[in-house]
Simulated scan of single mutants.
Amino acid sequence: MLVLAMTLTAFGVGCSDGSETITESDGTEPVGFNKEVTMPIEAVTTTVISPGAEPRSPLRRTLEPGISQQVTLTTDHHIEQQINQQPQRDISPPSITIPLTARSGADGVELTVGNVTSPDPAMAKALAPADGSRVGIDVSDVGAITALKLSPKPSTSDAARAALEQSFYQAVYQSIAFPAEAVGVGAVWTVRQPVSGSVPLEQVTTCTLTARDGNDLTIELNVVQTPKSTVWHLPNEAGQLEIVDYLMHGTGTIAVDLDLPLPVSGTVEVGGNQTYRDPRSAVTLRQSLRTEVQWGA
């Protein structure tokens, strides 16, 4: 039970969104540390449920090279965990706020990280050297992010790098892809996307275009995540747990300017409860999770 508890505590930061994080307790330097690391993002499938009202037109970002945007990304990941009848523990990582300058180019969008802050003093100190780090994103013609490239400053610690990686992964998997067909106000479409990781997930986001003023869009989101497997493969080959139940659901509203590379404002929150069981020891793990991704000025 002790080994299981330690493993789950170390991995709790990454379990809800499928991305695997590296903690200081690993004692090893992550692959590509202080070098550009490219992380492919699973492809999306969009399906129009209702095309909306006339007039209708395709939703496409018109990103001329050199377009610049300043926006702030804030992510908050809350985890409470209970093993058997032990007291419930809060193992949440600190929230972080990342000022970003985005510039469009011929090969995608490059983000420059500003002065990252956190309410946790230790995390804030660890993140200070990350100022000036670069993040590249490849975007398809319908706005789907297809790759995430991280280039941390050489002085960025592995703890800070893991926190940034986690935040960008959360933001990427709550981003919006547009349908290929022309749509109008009131249009509804789904975005289906696998989320790879120790618990492979199928994420379906239902998008509703609630308002449009030229290239300014307001889109409501409804997110549902379901596991594609009946087991959770623990990191570092530490075994596997049976998934007893898994319910993750969220909602949000995002404002998009088709002339800019990133959302202008908005918040998406996904949360739920999960229960796992170790078949060898009958140990049961319960987790309550909530992830919030917020864009703003």
Results as ranks from 00 to 15, higher is better:
L4A: 12
L4P: 06
L4M: 01
A5Q: 13
M6Y: 08
T9R: 04
G14M: 03
E20A: 00
E20V: 02
S25H: 11
P30K: 07
P30Y: 13
M39S: 15
P40C: 07
I41L: 11
E42Q: 13
A43D: 15
T45G: 12
T45Y: 05
T47D: 15
T47I: 09
V48Q: 15
E54C: 03
P58A: 08
R60A: 09
R61N: 05
R61I: 07
L63K: 09
P65D: 08
Q82S: 12
Q85N: 09
Q86G: 10
P93V: 05
P94S: 08
S95A: 12
I96Q: 12
T97R: 04
I98L: 06
I98Q: 06
P99E: 15
D107V: 02
V109D: 04
L111T: 09
G114R: 03
T117Q: 12
T117H: 06
T117P: 04
A122H: 11
A124I: 07
A126M: 15
P129W: 06
P129V: 00
A130R: 00
D131V: 02
G143L: 08
K153R: 08
S155T: 08
T156G: 01
S157V: 10
S157K: 07
S157L: 10
D158K: 14
A159D: 15
A163N: 06
L164A: 07
S167F: 00
Y169R: 11
Y169M: 00
Q170N: 10
S175R: 01
F178T: 07
A182T: 03
G184I: 00
A187F: 01
W189Y: 04
T190Q: 10
Q193E: 14
V195R: 04
L201T: 09
Q203V: 03
V204F: 03
T205E: 04
T206Q: 11
T210V: 03
G214D: 01
G214Q: 10
L221S: 14
N222D: 15
V223F: 03
V224H: 07
Q225Y: 09
Q225L: 12
K228C: 08
S229P: 03
L234Q: 13
N236M: 14
I243F: 07
V244W: 01
D245S: 01
Y246L: 07
L247G: 02
H249M: 06
I254W: 04
L260H: 06
L262S: 05
G266N: 12
Y276H: 01
Y276G: 00
D278Q: 10
P279L: 00
S281L: 09
S281V: 13
S281E: 14
V283Y: 06
S288I: 02
L289F: 12
T291W: 03
W295N: 10
G296M: 08
